[in-house]
């Protein structure tokens, strides 16, 4: 039986961008955890780009996709870019299925994502 089975940590290597490391399961139960991490990463809306690190993602269901949409809306409202990296091929396909890939750029790894941050 599961409740929220996710842990997140936020890195701020540069004032311009923050990275949210996601470990575990992105489901409806992850809402509080993910939104808290997003608020930290936003740094009072001054951060221009937020990167989502899915390297240690174990599982995501459709409610989890809904949470990502909510996060995307918040970032758009704050004029921030949202970028994802570390998604397995399976979850890259799910981004394509739900057309999230048209709003959230996907990169294979962190170095690729960092290189794509607008200067």
């Amino acid at each position: 039986m599961t409740q929220a089975n996710i842990s997140t940590s936020v890195r701020k290597p540069n004032p311009n961008y923050s990275i949210i490391d996601i470990q575990g399961e992105v489901t409806g139960f992850a809402e509080d955890n993910l939104m808290d991490a997003f608020s930290q990463a936003s740094n009072g809306k001054t951060t221009r780009t937020i990167l989502l690190n899915f390297t240690d993602l174990e599982y995501m269901n459709s409610s989890g996709i809904g949470l990502l949409v909510t996060m995307l809306i918040r970032s758009q409202r704050q004029k921030q870019n949202l970028i994802a990296f570390g998604l397995s091929r399976h979850y890259q396909e799910i981004f394509r299925l739900t057309r999230l890939n048209e709003a959230i750029s996907i990169y294979t790894d962190e170095s690729g994502a960092l290189a794509a941050i607008p200067s």
Binding site: T2, E58, I94, L97
Partner: peptide, 20 residues
């Protein structure tokens, strides 16, 4: 509040394949 769910984790067949 305690919710519970029992989902087949990492079952790739839970998701549809992308379609154009």
């Amino acid at each position: 509040m305690s919710k519970s769910e029992n989902t087949p984790k990492n079952n790739p067949n839970s998701w549809a394949r992308p379609v154009d």
